[in-house]
Amino acid sequence: MRNLVKVVVSACLLAVTAGFQSCSADSSNNIIEISSNLEIKNNYIEQKWIAAHFDFTPDCDRNAKTAYQKSIIEIVLKDGQYAAHDKYSMTSSQGTYTLEGSRLTMTSEQGKVHQYKITELGKREARVEVLNDPNLLAVELVSL
Rank of each mutant, 00 (worst) to 15 (best):
R2V: 13
R2Y: 12
L4I: 14
V5N: 06
V5L: 13
K6R: 15
V7A: 14
V7S: 10
V8W: 09
V8L: 14
V9I: 15
V9F: 11
S10E: 02
S10I: 10
A11E: 03
L14F: 11
A15P: 04
T17I: 13
T17D: 00
G19E: 06
S22Q: 08
S22I: 08
S24G: 09
A25T: 08
A25E: 09
D26C: 03
S27Y: 12
S28Q: 13
N30H: 14
I31G: 05
I31M: 11
I31V: 12
I34S: 15
S35T: 15
N37P: 01
E39F: 08
E39S: 14
K41P: 02
N42K: 15
N43Y: 12
N43S: 13
E46P: 02
E46F: 05
K48S: 13
K48H: 08
W49T: 05
I50L: 10
A52R: 05
A52Q: 07
F54V: 09
D55C: 02
F56P: 03
T57Q: 14
T57L: 09
P58Q: 13
P58N: 13
C60H: 00
C60E: 00
R62Q: 12
N63I: 13
N63K: 14
T66W: 03
A67R: 14
A67L: 11
A67P: 01
Q69I: 07
Q69W: 07
Q69Y: 07
S71T: 03
I73A: 00
E74H: 08
E74K: 05
L77S: 00
L77A: 01
D79W: 08
G80P: 07
Q81R: 14
Y82K: 01
Y82G: 00
A83G: 14
A84N: 05
A84L: 09
A84K: 08
H85W: 06
K87W: 10
K87N: 14
Y88A: 15
Y88Q: 15
S89W: 04
S89L: 11
S92H: 07
S92P: 01
Q94A: 10
Q94E: 14
Y97R: 02
Y97N: 02
L99V: 01
E100H: 12
E100M: 11
S102Y: 03
R103P: 04
R103D: 14
R103F: 12
L104I: 03
T105Q: 07
M106W: 00
M106P: 00
Q110K: 13
G111Y: 01
K112P: 04
K112F: 15
V113Q: 06
Q115Y: 00
K117Y: 10
K117M: 12
K117V: 09
I118A: 10
T119Y: 01
T119V: 11
T119M: 05
L121E: 00
R124P: 03
A126V: 02
A126Y: 00
R127G: 03
R127N: 09
E129A: 09
E129D: 11
V130M: 03
L131Y: 05
N132C: 02
N132S: 03
D133S: 11
D133W: 00
L137V: 12
A138I: 05
A138M: 07
A138E: 07
S143L: 00
L144I: 08
